[in-house]
């Protein structure tokens, strides 16, 4: 096997020249015949392929053959050179990037959005009491106003569900217009009309700010990320709008923004979600939905702050996460019937 010629080395062997004597005879009908040969006639007679090949050889006179072979070998060398250049360029750029950081990487420390805000000291805690919620929908209104959430009901960062159990034991869930206008007397869920209600409750929903968020893991361009204080955010200028995070969220907390006047960012068609009003909480304010809730069924605070009552609330009421078995370590804590049903 070692004696066998390397095909690459064998390139300039005079094999094509052998074909030359055959090619001398039909040389008179040069260009037209060659052009015709370049086309595979769809309705031609059955003809063995080799018959077309000598006509092809006519195109290349002997004196032009040597440069052609040389060009062919150079192209391979050029190809390898090009590959090496590209590889070298990538490696070089990687090394240079270490010394001259042009682009921020996911591992870089994020500059604080607000001066004097130290996310490392925060233990943001969100408690939702499904027993006390009255389904007024003010939280949905406040969220849409505060965060420029698109008007149509299918785009909601936070919403309210009504869970109705009828006397025949069936459970019906409805959320007309995401609860923004409150709820009619009877459930709008298909099949619920006319049935006697045994029990019902309202369940406010929002992003769970999971400790192990699947949406962050699946993003192909690292556009969605988790801050040091545990809030999952989206960089609207990096998002490509693939919708992968939307499908990955078991809590249905995400959507892609439509184009229009009322969008949360200047680039439409990107993923959007509840941020627990990150722009407010890092200034010491409460999220808009918490602020507006008339019955205090949404409670929010920093458990690390001794002056904040949230730690005492958690200690006294012992709320629990919603569907922890889905494995994402959700961080919104619920109280009341929502937990019992889950």
């Amino acid at each position: 096997m070692t004696e066998k010629l390397n095909p690459a080395d064998a390139e300039p062997t005079p094999t094509p020249v052998v074909a030359q004597p055959d090619a001398v005879e039909p040389a008179a009908e040069a260009p037209e015949a060659a052009e015709a040969a370049a086309v595979v006639p769809a309705d031609a007679e059955p003809m063995p392929a080799p018959a077309m090949a000598p006509a092809d050889a006519v195109l290349v006179p002997l004196e032009q053959l040597a440069p052609a072979i040389a060009a062919a070998s150079v192209s391979r060398r050029a190809f390898l050179g090009f590959g090496l250049a590209v590889a070298g360029g990538v490696v070089g750029a990687g090394v240079l990037a270490q010394y001259f950081p042009v682009f921020a990487s996911a591992g870089d420390e994020v500059a604080p959005i607000v001066p004097n805000y130290n996310p490392a000291t925060k233990a943001w805690t969100f408690v939702v009491d499904s027993a006390s919620c009255i389904g007024c929908g003010l939280c949905v209104v406040a969220c849409k106003e505060e965060n420029h959430v698109p008007e149509p009901a299918e785009y909601a960062r936070t919403w309210i569900e009504r869970h109705v159990t009828t006397t025949d034991g069936q459970l019906y869930i409805d959320s007309p217009e995401a609860g923004i206008n409150g709820f009619p007397k009877d459930s709008t869920a298909p099949g619920a009309a006319g049935k006697a209600v045994k029990s019902s409750y309202f369940q406010p929903r929002l992003c769970m700010q999971c400790a192990e968020p699947p949406c962050v893991g699946v993003c192909p361009v690292s556009a969605t990320y988790q801050t040091e204080d545990g809030i999952v955010l989206v960089d609207a200028r990096r998002c490509i709008g693939c919708g992968y995070c939307v499908t990955s969220c078991p809590y249905g907390a995400r959507y892609l923004t439509p184009a229009g006047e009322d969008t949360p960012s200047d680039t439409p068609g990107v993923a959007d979600k509840c941020t627990w009003c990150y722009h407010r909480i890092n200034k010491g304010q409460k999220p808009a939905c918490v602020e507006i809730c008339p019955v205090k069924s949404r409670q929010f605070g920093d458990a690390n702050d001794p002056a904040d009552p949230i730690a005492a609330i958690v200690k006294a009421t012992n709320p629990a996460p919603f569907h922890p078995e889905w494995g994402t370590k959700p961080r919104v804590l619920y109280l009341g019937p929502a937990l019992e049903e889950a």
């Binding site: 299918e154 785009y155 869930i173 959320s175 995401a178 609860g179 959507y255 889905w326």
Partner: peptide, 9 residues
């Protein structure tokens, strides 16, 4: 869907 998706049941 396992749950309501962005407010839509």
């Amino acid at each position: 869907p396992r749950t309501t998706q962005a407010g839509t049941v």
